[in-house]
Simulated scan of single mutants.
Amino acid sequence: MSWTDYYRRRDALDAVLELARHDLEGPLPFPEQAAAEFADRGELLLALHYRWSVRLTGRVGLAQAEAEKDATIDPVEAVAQAWRATAAEHPVLRRVLDANTDTHGGVLRPAIEGEQRMLAIASGLAEHTEPAEEIARVGAAYLALIRSTPSRERHRGNRVEQFLRRLVASA
């Protein structure tokens, strides 16, 4: 793919999301600009999911790095916050993906299972040595929990205060 191809595809994805922003309840837009770059709506959905994955993976990587540097940061919560922040920053993209998960022959299913596995492993809820189906199952449950639980702000007090909060929470 040349840079020209990349920019045309990027612009087509931007156009689709702009159209979707104006009609949040409508079907997946497929303007001429998108039709010129993607064979069908399934291919378009895969490209949109790839865009989501790039953004999510970046945030999750930062969350993991923070959790590794600071033992007071819970990796499960850090990854959840990364997912929520990405969804908040890209609400139309998230809505389009959610609305089309089971459409177009389930073309997104493998990509979604990959995302679920990534979340499960990044949060420490699963190990890469476990069966892929099990990791995806854990990731699906974790993602359902992320979506249904309100965001908790990280409290950064001094280390003694953080330790006492953890003791109280575990009692």
Rank of each mutant, 00 (worst) to 15 (best):
M1P: 02
S2V: 01
W3H: 12
W3D: 10
D5K: 11
Y6N: 02
Y7S: 15
R10T: 14
R10V: 09
R10A: 14
D11A: 14
A12D: 09
A15W: 05
A15N: 12
V16C: 07
L19P: 00
H22G: 04
L24Y: 03
L28H: 07
F30A: 07
F30L: 07
P31S: 10
Q33K: 12
Q33W: 03
A34S: 12
A35W: 01
A35H: 02
A39Q: 10
D40I: 03
D40L: 03
R41F: 06
G42M: 05
E43Q: 14
L44S: 11
L45Y: 10
L45D: 06
L48C: 11
R51L: 07
W52H: 15
R55T: 06
L56R: 03
L56W: 01
T57A: 13
R59F: 02
L62W: 06
A63P: 09
E68R: 05
E68N: 00
E68Y: 00
K69W: 05
D70R: 13
A71F: 06
I73K: 14
D74S: 13
A80R: 10
A80Y: 01
A80G: 11
W83T: 07
R84Y: 07
A85N: 09
T86E: 15
T86W: 07
V92P: 01
R94L: 12
R95M: 10
D98H: 05
D98Y: 01
A99F: 03
A99G: 08
N100A: 01
T101S: 09
H104D: 04
H104R: 07
G105S: 06
I112L: 15
I112S: 03
G114H: 06
E115K: 08
M118N: 00
M118T: 00
L119G: 09
G124F: 10
L125E: 10
L125I: 04
T129W: 08
T129A: 14
A132S: 12
E133P: 01
E133D: 15
E134N: 04
E134S: 08
R137H: 09
R137A: 15
G139I: 04
G139T: 04
A141L: 09
Y142F: 15
L143N: 06
I146C: 01
R147Q: 10
R147N: 05
T149P: 08
P150E: 15
P150D: 14
P150V: 12
S151G: 01
S151H: 12
R152D: 14
E153K: 13
R156W: 11
G157S: 14
G157I: 06
N158G: 14
E161R: 13
F163G: 06
R165N: 12
R166F: 05
L167G: 00
L167C: 07
A169D: 15
A171N: 11
